[in-house]
Design a protein around this nucleic acid. Structure first.
Lengths: 334, 334
DNA sequence: CTGAAAGCGCTTACAG
DNA sequence: CTGAAAGCGCTTACAG
């Protein structure tokens, strides 16, 4: 590989001059031309590591996510990579599986300038301790106490929208079934939005937490829960809101197998707005998060922190109702 | 950040000695202990860039893929990251959208030792030119002329399995509908496997190519094609094999809307074995690729190339039939 | 086994 | 504007 020295020799200038044209500092036109000529003849490219050692930047951002099995995360990664590339940054991907140990290495790397910044969706409480004020970190969905910019969507409003939809389609008895970590602030907002709005609108609402990881039996448990509730109270649940699409999909399958008609007997609303194979129709009616816009904002904010520009500490993007065939049309507008 | 100098001073040894314990070279126990003590007290971590400049390795591998919208790619990425991490490597992700320009930067980076190796699924013919014998590259699905290890699954056999299934469930008239790039060698093998086996087994087989990107109207076109074929020949297609699951799913939806019963009237087999939300049931009966095993082999081979060990030039992993409710049970075994 | 020193390929004040 | 030189944080022969 050609080095800056080779270029300098070939162009008949000093390495300092070559470095300047490399970094867009002004040099005499004649020299710039000679250098550019030499660069292209030698097919020279700067060695990022040598540069990074001095310059303290590497044009690399790490994205920390639990996994890519969840299509929401896969799509987010897809768009974050595109945005970073547009800004001439590379993306290193860290799938933490929720383990803080794995994340830790990236925090260290950031502190060491081996990566310029981090975009992270992390459920770990421990992370907070490691996050200093000047750490170039943007958090997805989770609002830290520290001065860490956070990009999220309007989870509370997501719950509100779901509750209102049930109300406007004539429901009196609804349910909320959640899953996943309780620490994740954003999901808790969905809970609150739905529960509070249901109460305000005078709907009866039961809710249930099905633990960290929904399994194959979760849909059965939900079915059984509904049966017992009906037997005990003589009340029929007319609308169910889920904290995620996967739980909603599993439940829809189960209920249909049991002969329950959807949406006639019971309406279903999921969360995320995922589509079949990530580009077909929706799986279920859902609250759609603006994934691409979230990705764009994450990159925007991390760039600001990296360049020491003032960042927006909290970005809350709007969500919307997405009709997916498991809900009835609304009676009144809005 | 503490540097190796700080550690040396604190431990009362030279930087050379510190470097040695860092790299597992033997030093006197007493010194090693002092160095380790200093390292942990200073919370020291080696600067990868400084090391990379000398050592010519960075413990980083790039994964090049078209996108993460396709769940197959998302899952592959998921497993490749896990495998790389286990081997203490980081993964930088390059989503090329099929554009060679974007890939090119990574080839250059590899040549420059900014990344140690590349795992790539690329459809671009141009890539071949850039690939020298010593380029640490492992290709997914695509067999290059050059001495580039390739990891793939048994696409030919996938076609064979589908054809046999139709035969054993009593079909006489089948169809093959493909989509996607014609250059991708692996898909062409599916074509061949299915077409050749259908002929050998004495089944009539029509086939059709629906272009690079299947759109919303592709399923309509397929339906129309089937209608016309039946009208013109008085022959009814009893089994359809698709080059990918998404096309199969779209077609199943369309046919059902038109009142065609699946699998009673026509059987459907897709390709990839994708599941609902990447962990639910299969979308359609399909040929399942061993994604995790493919990821493991890619990482294994790229490690070998990086460490100048002999690599396996072609790894063909077995595929299997996955029953997904759009096929009839086989009459005879096997 | 250990230390002093050269050198990896850049960038960046500093003179000129 | 340009060049010579120091220095970034490591590794690696080379003496001892």
């Amino acid at each position: 590989m050609a080095t800056i020295k080779d270029v300098a020799k070939r162009a008949g200038v000093s390495v300092g001059t070559v470095s300047k044209v490399l970094n867009g500092v002004y040099v005499r036109d004649a020299n710039r031309l000679k250098v550019e000529e030499a660069i292209s003849q030698l097919n020279y490219q700067v060695n990022t590591y040598a540069r990074g050692m001095k310059a303290q930047f590497t044009n690399t951002v790490a994205l920390i996510l639990p996994d890519l099995v969840n299509p929401f995360f896969a799509l987010l990664t897809n768009y974050v990579e595109q945005e970073l590339f547009r800004k001439n940054y590379r993306m290193v991907l860290c799938l933490s599986s929720g383990s803080f140990e794995k994340e830790q290495g990236y925090f260290a790397a950031a502190r060491q300038n081996k990566i310029d910044g981090i975009i992270g969706l992390t459920y770990s409480d421990e992370a907070e301790k490691y996050v200093s004020d000047d750490m170039p970190l943007v958090s997805i969905d989770r609002y830290y106490e520290a001065h860490i910019p956070c990009v999220t969507s309007d989870n509370y409003q997501g719950g509100v929208i779901a509750a209102r939809h049930f109300y406007r389609t004539g429901c009196h008895q609804v349910a909320y079934f959640r899953t996943g970590a309780k620490t994740a602030g954003s999901t808790l907002e969905r809970d609150r939005g739905f529960l509070e709005t249901s109460r305000e609108l005078g709907m009866e609402c039961v809710h249930m937490d099905f633990g960290e990881e929904p399994g194959a039996q979760t849909a059965d448990q939900i079915y059984q829960y509904l049966q017992e509730y009906q037997a005990n109270t003589s009340r029929v649940v007319e609308g169910i809101f889920f904290s995620s699409d996967d739980l909603a999909v599993m439940t829809v399958e189960k209920l249909r197998r049991e002969g329950i008609r959807i949406p006639e007997d019971v309406q279903i609303i999921g969360y995320d707005g995922l589509t079949v194979l990530n580009r077909g129709p929706l799986y279920v009616s859902s609250i759609r998060q603006p994934i691409q816009e979230m990705a764009r904002c994450c990159v925007e904010q991390v760039m600001r922190v990296i360049h020491h520009e003032p960042a927006q500490m909290l970005t809350v993007l709007p969500v919307e109702f997405a009709e997916g065939g498991t809900t009835k049309p609304q009676i009144s507008g809005g």
